[in-house]
Nucleic acid binder design. Structure first.
Lengths: 180, 180
DNA sequence: ATGTTCATGTAAACAGTTACATGATTTC
DNA sequence: GAAATCATGTAACTGTTTACATGAACAT
């Protein structure tokens, strides 16, 4: 039994809580795991078919008016999910940060251009934080008891992280301005 | 003139300081930008050929014993690099964090399994930080005046970031242990 | 009626890693 | 003379985004 593909990990994970269609999975991940584990239709639908072929998920008998194919975990799927969650393998960790890359090359810029770069980058992270805060408040206000605890722990991480990043860039901005 | 490809951005950036071969670029990025902007041979060599065809880089007359093709920026290449560094477009920002993804699904685990997950994840980030600290010290000790300032600013970011992440997971670990 | 959302899907393009092939040069 | 490093490259695979196509159901 080989490793779950990246997209299989989110899919099995969200199906762990309740059955969902591909469409549902996309909608949910778009407001939750997106910030640390995204997924697009182009991955989700083919991956659902593969997981079905492997016997890890199965389509529920479609109910309701619309053309829906809600999937649920099979026992084998729940096992694979649990094995992944508790496995000891090296965790995939990956960052792509263009602001930092530009900063790395900052010596190619004039003092003024470098200050502008830092200011713009700081501003973009603050906008990101604002958007995230709005989303977080919305999610918190819709929170119910059977949502579980950990999604909100992860949400707290996102908030704290973006706050930290913003503070770092503000600090650098102050430093450069003090020299200028 | 369209956007620079992801790999073109690092390549032009490192060539901004001095001419280098594809091999050199790989070696340099592996100990510097790797943590926020990686590149592999499979991207670097073809991209160098494309950039040469577009007139943004050119091969220097090969000197020395080995079969080397050191590239330098053309004036058009330097212009494209400067345009990118000073452009106002939305910065690419992307995180993939499997520890966080697993944590998000933590409600599927028993209390003990969840604590184990957090402990293991915290330990992995600490190992990452240790490795990074070793690299950082090495780089700092080899530092010369004409290295420029900003690579070390970015290095400082990496250090502070990993320290923050480690602290966050330690905090969560304490919290869960206090309940257990 | 008409616009929005629900819902599934695919094709093409783009991005990235890994593993391999090749051979020269340097170091021990 | 063997091993390590320098150096360039490609092929195959895996992963990911984007844009498009299709059509049903719901809301106004």
């Amino acid at each position: 039994m080989q490793q779950l593909s990246p997209t299989a990990r989110v899919i099995l994970g969200v199906l762990g809580a309740s059955p969902r269609t591909g469409y549902d999975i996309k909608k949910l991940t778009d407001v939750s795991t997106r910030f640390f584990w995204g997924a697009s239709y182009g991955q989700i639908y083919p991956e659902l078919h593969r997981l079905e072929a492997e016997g890890l998920v199965e389509a529920e008998p479609a109910s309701g008016a619309r053309r829906r194919r809600p999937y649920r975990l099979t026992p084998a799927g729940r096992e694979a999910l649990h094995r992944w969650l508790t496995s000891d393998e090296l965790l995939h960790f990956d960052v792509r940060d263009e602001g930092l890359l530009k900063l790395f090359f900052g010596d190619l810029l004039s003092d003024q251009e470098a200050r502008d770069l830092v200011r713009r980058t700081r501003a973009q992270y603050e906008e990101l934080l604002d958007g995230f805060r709005g989303l977080a408040e919305e999610l918190e206000s819709d929170r119910t008891e059977d949502d579980g605890r950990f999604p909100y722990v992860a949400l707290g991480y996102g908030l704290a992280y973006l706050e930290w990043v913003g503070e770092w860039w503000r600090g650098l901005e102050r430093e450069l301005d003090a020299e200028g």
